[in-house]
């Protein structure tokens, strides 16, 4: 397994308590910005009925799904009680106002000997 860091955009592009969406190999990923400028990334699917978390209301380190009001922790991707479930998360970092996200991928097959 190796990984690549992709540039997602400027921190300033996302409003505080807001989100934006990027796609990776067909999967939508929501990038959230909190009031204190922390940034988190989760797959943009609520564990309940796949609602787009990116469209929810962000508060503290949580987001409330717009479809049925499940509350998901941004740092862990877990649903708050009494709901149960988890959404995959991704590592993100902010350097000089630029957000980057880490995508893990299987290494390419080792080069085979060629004639």
């Amino acid at each position: 397994m190796s990984s690549t860091w992709f540039t997602v955009g400027q921190l300033a592009d996302i409003p505080r308590l807001g989100a934006k969406v990027v796609h990776w190999q067909g999967t939508p990923i929501a990038i959230f910005r909190t009031q204190t400028d922390e940034v988190f990334a989760l797959e943009d699917h609520c564990p309940h009925k796949q609602g787009p978390l990116s469209q929810g209301i962000v508060h503290d380190r949580k987001v409330t799904c717009p479809l049925h009001g499940w509350v998901i922790a941004l740092d862990k991707g877990t649903a708050m009680a009494p709901d149960e479930g988890c959404t995959p998360g991704y590592s993100v970092r902010v350097t000089d106002g630029v957000i980057e996200i880490e995508m893990k991928h299987l290494d390419a097959l080792p080069p085979t000997a060629t004639a």
């Binding site: 009031q35 209301i57 962000v58 508060h59 503290d60």
Partner: peptide, 11 residues
């Protein structure tokens, strides 16, 4: 009691 309120009180 919360920093940012929640999806009930903020709207």
């Amino acid at each position: 009691k919360t920093e940012d309120g929640c999806a009930k009180c903020r709207p």
